[in-house]
Design a protein around this nucleic acid. Structure first.
Lengths: 151, 151
DNA sequence: AATGAAAAGATACTAGGTATCAATATTCGC
DNA sequence: GCGAATATTGATACCTAGTATCTTTTCATT
């Protein structure tokens, strides 16, 4: 019996099927768990939430999801690579170092800027990797509230 | 007997000493090898060139050099982390995907741009990681020469 | 239901890095 | 220059993240 899963999970599976990959029971379970993550995660995080799945299966399906663009890798400040749900297409993240949440960076003309700067160095740009670290609005507000409470 | 090493290696060791770390024979050997690398490298690369040093020693000294800012980590396009000589201070690299060379990215106002964009998202920026990939001048010229030769 | 391909799971393996600890170098005070 | 105190080393075991291999299971098709 096919478990009921949410719309986002359904979307992950649909995309896999569009690329010719089967929507199996383990993949449905994984899609559901990934759809429920509210921040970046590791393969190990998924494994704890899916103890019945084999380790290799998790890595394999994760890889598929990255290849099909549904999940992306994010670089943490310390150099660790984690995964997170992707909102498709090339984009950058604002990673909150406090709560681990991430927002997509919109309205950033970095590509143009890099293009120009690279050209000045005689460099033919083909790609780039950018992560931005800081504190999100919510975490800043929490701190402010605490400060007020202590005042 | 203290081996003679070049000026750049000497500088690495001096910096370590300024931070209170000893300039030992293994570290002198490592500094010399690192000073001779012309592109990014891995701990394993160093180990091949320094077979007499213990593995842990290489990792430990590499870590020290990163902490003191003499060596930095660079993120390759595939997510691998390598090391390279650092030219001190925060800066970004133009990494040539063909020959592995890297240039420092100068005259790039990305900090300001990120600051502004983050602020629009209610995000308090504290840091970022940027790597730029492409082909350096030399590699582009080689290709052009080959094309002309074949024409 | 039979079959062939895809996927799963177990397992062993690899790479990159850290922890532990006894043995060795190095520095410092004399 | 000598010895004690301390930093560093190397060996080893360990850890995490990921891949390779191979047999069994599941899936979709007929």
């Amino acid at each position: 019996m096919r478990k009921r899963i949410n719309a986002l999970a359904e979307q992950l599976l649909d995309t896999l099927e569009q690329k010719g990959y089967r929507s199996t029971e383990p993949r449905r379970a994984m899609a559901q768990v990934i759809a429920n993550q509210d921040k970046h995660f590791t393969a190990e995080d998924l494994r704890k939430q899916l103890p019945s799945l084999g380790r290799a299966t998790i890595f394999r399906s994760l890889k598929l999801l990255v290849e099909t663009g549904m999940v992306c890798r994010v670089l943490l400040e310390d150099g660790d690579l984690h995964y997170q749900l992707s909102h498709r297409g090339h984009h950058h993240h604002l990673l909150c170092v406090e709560c681990g949440s991430s927002q997509d960076l919109l309205g950033c003309d970095i590509e143009d800027l890099l293009q120009q700067t690279s050209a000045r160095h005689g460099f033919e740009l083909s790609g780039h990797w950018l992560e931005v670290y800081g504190r999100c609005n919510a975490c800043r507000n929490v701190e402010q509230t605490v400060e007020l409470a202590n005042a």
